[in-house]
Design a binder for these strands. Structure first.
Lengths: 241, 241
DNA sequence: GATAATAAATGTAAATTATACATTAATTTT
DNA sequence: AAAATTAATGTATAATTTACATTTATTATC
């Protein structure tokens, strides 16, 4: 267990003496993508006040745990997933954001592939996927967190290849377009979209088709992270719009 | 003084019982601009360990204080400035980032006008302006904070009008170009730069010249926040590059 | 008071990128 | 064999970006 190193600070004990410690939590804004829509994984709050209400999943940060590690822990506990895209959104630090103890929370948004997460675990947690356009009211400032996360996603996706994080490793171009249409809330032109994504030279065409959504079938592609790395090293962005 | 509301949580005391409270601090990355260079305001650390070393200015967040309010407080205490551009950078939450107590810090970067701050106050605090390209070693993870802040500034300045925050209310176009050259670390073409900034229609030309840097003198301009607001409401960005 | 010196201000042509838009291709079902 | 369905593709026009050199206003100097 983590132990404070009192000695180091012995000299200026007074500086620290008044108790300004507080709880630090993380809350996960977990996005998925399915049949044309962005989805959000919601949980039923287990502790009073507001027990039973819909909420993001979160946790206190332990004293012997990095803030980012706490977020990764929670994500794994609830979805079974490690090493997925997760990034800090922002700090929610208002004094009265939690009606109980003083507690700040670091919002962390994650993008996951709906074909990869552990459905048993999610069921055990009594969690459910909601369309981001049809969310129930959320506890505390969680509604604001979701709003902020959606805005950030929209922003970031313009220049970073976030769309791929929401699709299976193998995906079709129509699927990719659909993800971006959901993120940007805007219809995109097929021909211009294809031109643009291909122009970056980071997609690898496979010798395989997905026939789940058409008779003709659409070719599957993979995102090539090495080529993407080269792209940004040359000072370019991955633009979609 | 802030008082925990124990009653509300009485039922699940056990959930909170193990002490996971920690210190929450903010650290200010305060940028200025002078004679072609970005400057950073640095302080000499007052508490052990590392007392006397160069450091960002920071503070613990009080229990009855919003996180953002703590940052505003510190900025005002050290520079006398209120209502200047300040934004969250990110959370520094590694377990061992501070060799003393467990303490996470929220980096907050500010852009200030060097003609406006309170020089007496800064002197009292034993602070000094350093060129961002000639920084001394900084304590803890403060060097990383500065690096991150510079990267974020570079990113954000591409689409948000941050350059103006570093100049006096009245400025010349050559000064503005110089700010952006410092932010982007790149020389810009005079004619193309002017074309671009004027194209957004957010600069008001004054009937006044600044003759401090040329015989001919350069016209002064003001940034028109109302027109900028209109610009973004129409879904446009303020692009400079 | 003419000349030199200095930084400010301006325009244009070529290249690149973005936009708008309609048809053909592959496959399965009937 | 025909119909139905989604995937895939190209081109012309408009808009934007880039590269680049000269003139202008003013002060200092001779």
């Amino acid at each position: 267990m983590y132990k404070e190193k009192e000695d180091l600070h012995a000299v200026q004990k007074d500086y620290y003496k008044d108790n300004r410690k507080m709880y630090v939590a993380i809350d996960c804004i977990i996005f998925g993508f399915d049949s044309g829509n962005l989805k959000l994984l919601l949980f039923q709050r287990k502790v009073a006040p507001l027990s039973g209400e819909w909420s993001l999943i979160g946790s206190f940060v332990n004293l012997d745990e990095d803030v980012s590690a706490a977020a990764e822990r929670v994500l794994e506990e609830t979805t079974g997933l490690k090493n997925v895209f997760m990034e800090e959104l922002k700090v929610y630090g208002a004094v009265n954001r939690d009606p109980g103890y003083r507690c700040i929370s670091v919002g962390q948004y994650a993008l996951i592939r709906l074909n990869e997460y552990d459905k048993e675990l999610v069921k055990e947690h009594g969690a459910a996927w909601y369309d981001v356009n049809e969310l129930p009211p959320l506890v505390l400032d969680h509604g604001q967190m979701v709003k902020d996360a959606l805005a950030k996603l929209k922003q970031k996706a313009r220049f970073q290849p976030l769309g791929f994080e929401l699709l299976p490793e193998k995906f079709t171009i129509p699927q990719l377009q659909s993800v971006y249409e959901a993120i940007f809330q805007k219809e995109l032109d097929t021909r211009n979209f294809r031109k643009k994504v291909f122009s970056h030279n980071v997609l690898v065409k496979l010798d395989e088709k997905d026939k789940t959504s058409s008779k003709r079938g659409a070719f599957l592609y993979k995102f090539d992270r090495k080529r993407y790395k080269r792209l940004i090293e040359q000072g370019n962005d991955f633009e979609v719009l």
